[in-house]
Simulated scan of single mutants.
Amino acid sequence: MIILGLLLGQINTDVISGVPRYSFDIPELTDGIGFVVIAMGVFGFGEIIVNLGQPAESREVFTKDVKGLWPTKQDVKDAFPAVLRGTALGSILGVLPGGGALLASFAAYTLEKKSRGRKGEVPFGQGNIRGVAGPESANNAGAQTSFIPMLTLGIPPNAVMALMVGAMTIKGIQPGPQVMTSNPQLFWGLIASMWVGNAMLVILNLPLIGIWIKLLTVPYRFLFPAIVVFCGIGCYTLNNSSFDVYMTAAFTLVGYVFYKLGCEPAPLLLGFILGPMMEENLRRALLLSRGDWTTFATRPLSAGLLVAALLMIVVVMLPSIKAKREEAFVED
């Protein structure tokens, strides 16, 4: 999937020679495929088609009244240690590329299942508060720390950060360590938004939780037409071009095929975002070294990064590590 994303990123105008490539004489493709087009088609419309292909009863989240939404004092007491453990675990795993925040949620759930709770508590899978507090804390912590590789190295660790990189690129901002010095307002505004966002979550979610639950009772047959309309308007207004709408429809079919084949579309997005950046810097380095490929192995920094990447691949492929990863994603 990453390779497919890299190939899609090559459909543009060559940054060195200025010659259009893989555009098939279509003028709209000389500027490349829009990032929003791929994201909206694969993740937006593709998900809608998948949901429409399921039985109607499986699409409805809640059909009955939900009561007792506020946590009790005992729930808070039981959840507090799980929150601390989940936050620590999510902060570490959230930095890892390739879905570290998602892995943190499953790993935190596995950790809570193996941790000793109080006597007589509700079993896991039947409403244990620790099974909610731990993974949610890990997910929130991982979502915050996933900004670290994006802001320091310009590398998005997951699909959400890839969307952030795409938005920054559209605005002419180069992700990386220079963001802190060249755009301090953006950097510190981002830090402040984390504090404000978490505070607003507490203010909005707790008093208005009943309203959010009511939204889940809206039948899907009313929701998906509105989603399609707003997504279509967004795709068209991006460049005021109907070609973007047609491309979104094409990638909708691609996303549906991915779902049927059991392929994860997030790596495609990562490859599409990182591909042009990687190519531009690769060709720049080769120009400076006069075409000498050994410069990547003789320079200490580049050689160290290549060795680190190779070690990470080897470690992840080890049977013991692979078994632990699969165990973390298993839910009883």
Rank of each mutant, 00 (worst) to 15 (best):
L29R: 08
M277V: 13
L204W: 05
L288P: 00
S182K: 06
I213R: 12
G9K: 09
F329G: 09
V15H: 12
I213G: 03
I233E: 06
Y256S: 08
Y220V: 06
G100H: 01
E57A: 12
W70C: 01
A199E: 06
S137L: 11
D78V: 00
S105H: 00
D75M: 13
A104M: 06
I173M: 15
K171L: 07
I16L: 09
T72K: 10
A162N: 03
G131F: 02
M164Y: 04
T298N: 15
K322R: 14
T217Y: 01
P175W: 07
F80I: 08
F43R: 07
V165L: 05
Y22A: 08
F296L: 13
P27Q: 11
L301R: 07
E264S: 10
P97S: 14
I48T: 14
T217A: 14
F224T: 10
P156W: 08
P225T: 14
D75T: 03
A199M: 12
P175I: 07
F80H: 04
L201I: 10
V307P: 03
A56W: 01
T252N: 10
T217C: 07
Y256G: 02
T248E: 03
W188T: 09
S146E: 12
P300L: 13
S115C: 12
K260Q: 09
P135H: 09
V83A: 09
G166T: 01
M40H: 03
I191C: 13
L268F: 07
V228F: 11
I48S: 12
L89M: 11
C231H: 10
I148R: 05
E326W: 04
G94R: 06
S58L: 04
R283N: 11
F24D: 02
F296C: 06
